[in-house]
Design a protein around this nucleic acid. Sequence first.
RNA 1: GCGCCCGUAGCUCAGCUGGAUAGAGCAUCGGACUUCUAAUCCGAGGGUCGGGGGUUCGAAUCCCUCCGGGCGCGCCA
Length: 552
Amino acid sequence: MITEQLAELTRSALKGAIADGAIQVEAPETIAFERPKRREHGDWATNVAMILAKEAGARPRDVAAAIVDRLPASEFVEVVEIAGPGFLNFRLSSVWLHDVVRRAADPSSGFGRAAQSSGLKTNVEYVSANPTGPTSVVLGRHAAVGDAMAALLEAVGHEVTREYYFNDAGRQVIQFALSVDARYRQSLGIDAAFPEDGYHGEYVTEIAAALREEVGEDLLTLPDEERIERVRRFAVPLIMGSIQATLERFGTTFNVWFSEARLHERGEVMAAIDKLREKGLIEELEGAIWFLSSRLGDDKDRVVVRSDGTPTYFAADLGYVLDKFARGFDDLIYLWGADHHGTIPRLMAAAEALGFERSRIRIPLVQTVRLVRGGEAVKGSKRAGVIIPLDELIDEVGADAARYTFLTRSIDAPLTFDIDQVTQQNAENPVYYVQYAHARICSILRKAEEQGVRFDPDARLEQMTHPSEESLMRKLATYEEIVPESASQLAPQKITRYVEELAGQFSSFYRDCRVVSDDRELTLARIALCVATRNVIASGLGLVGVSAPERM
RNA sequence: GCGCCCGUAGCUCAGCUGGAUAGAGCAUCGGACUUCUAAUCCGAGGGUCGGGGGUUCGAAUCCCUCCGGGCGCGCCA
């Protein structure tokens, strides 16, 4: 990456200055570069002189001068200026700019992606909704964010596993099975009571009807417990299938579907509790078994096995984290809803107690989705049966627009999803703006091909001198920095934003510069720039799971 | 009461581990299609970055405090 090269040059100059006795400081470990907001401040700037000034007991601009005087020559750097309070502003050369365009235009160069594997295996677990109802719009945000994070981590060289954890063992599933069972029996004319905390959705009745279709009245003769179990075994896979189908329609596919029940069956939950017991972190009180998580930073201790002998959801978490690390992952990402933030300290405490560093776990929290329809907030409650199914949203706005909308905002910000607005968002949604730029480039390239002009990787890029061409090239160049930045911060909204800016730069270029013209040399150069831009738009859209159409 | 997140243009939101004159889209107003896609482009107006302290060469960004909003604080998940 260019910032690394610039940091290397600067470090070398700084060492020279120290060796010469020009400034007396310790060379810093990292020299940070940032993109100045203003064009005239160059392509990259560093504040290293200002940071060192205090320690050196010198004025920032003098420190800067000592560095600039000793900067090694580089074909990529055109000029370095000392500006403002002591910034070093680097203006890069066209050699660098053209190198960027050539690499971006070449699909095999892996532009924007890590040159080599990081050697790290990362598990990204997301969505992970209970198999008790269809996938809601809320989970669509999770799916979009999780997919983008996974893609970003792959782009920086990690080996990523996308995982969905489903609670097919807990109380919620029992409630769900009881709900279906009640509807099943009611449909057979029995006056069955509906469970108090049951699931009221229409889909419950539909599943019950499907069950009746399948088995008729056969289950009625079974004892309650057995019948409920039969209902559960019928209903849960049905729901899981529908969740999976919806997510696939949305463009989300998981590598691993992880069952909580299997975790219990394999004894991993109890193994985790035993491990904690060995460390003296388990205590029995009032018939329940507690994990003393408060000793590791949690607010209070947590029950892992209830007094009735059944393990809690949190107990499964213990086994699960153990299982994940046992599978060889270096880093775990749990993408959770913000309403689960209170459970972070206990999971971290558990991980630490089980012997894993907290830094290996990251838990980004996705804020709520507020649904608005007809100007009024829609309260989403799965149990009350009021949800907006993700399927419905896909029908109305399409997977691309929905996905993109979910990813334009920071995950920390609550998202107001106005169904009506997004529905009529046809031409106003920025996703179409970006896709349009891509389609337009494809159209130009088709036109060029009709006239017998094809992309030539050896095109003479120095033919391009217009400011719009230069701006576009510079915007392309920042992609290599945006991707790792976005990945390390787990901030996919930076990609949607970047891709909009890139599309905007392209539109300006399109206005100012005719690509296919009589000037063959210039035409070839501009085609190369178009190909580079098209590739980067497609790559960026790919990271956020949105298609890049060739025609619109 | 305690904890987490949010408060930036009329609206929806960006703003990276503190940087130079705070940005984008939408909306509003005014312009641009015999030319490779007008789902486009160009221009204009619009701000006490919730309030107040502090840290420093420098704060929308970090710390404290207050106000306002969301979410959580179970032997639910």
